[in-house]
Design a protein around this nucleic acid. Structure first.
Length: 105
DNA sequence: CAAATGACGGTGC
DNA sequence: GGCACCGCCATTT
């Protein structure tokens, strides 16, 4: 276990993402207090158990799209989940101005 | 111990 | 607006 507060912190941030919104890996890392740990966030999520219950589908890369290869199972699953929450994908991408956690009027 | 990998980000053209 | 290269960190081989 070696105590992994960073891991739990990341899970907390992901779980804190409002429904119908999304966040980038770098954003989560920054919120966690580690600006350049974007990669680590993805690596951590990958290690998550499948029964984690964590809404990882609300996490996307800086491009505003899924980080999985198109046509992959996880890719479709994530997109479907987001659509179910009101997130509209445009050409496989979404608008951060509308779904980004950065609250904007 | 060193090199390679990976659910990434930012800048340049 | 899209494509390409470099940089970042932690984990794995």
């Amino acid at each position: 276990m070696q105590t992994a507060p960073l891991n739990e912190l990341i899970w907390q941030i992901v779980a804190s993402i409002p429904e119908g919104k999304v966040a980038t890996y770098g954003q989560i890392a920054t919120l966690a207090g580690y600006p350049n740990h974007a990669r680590y966030v993805g690596t951590t999520l990958k290690k998550l158990p499948k029964d984690t219950g964590l809404p990882w589908h609300r996490v996307v890369n800086a491009r505003g799209e899924s980080s999985f290869p198109k046509g992959s199972d996880a890719y479709k699953r994530q997109m479907e989940r987001l659509e179910a929450e009101g997130v509209i994908f445009r050409n496989g991408r979404l608008s951060f101005s509308r779904y980004g956690i950065e609250q904007r009027p």
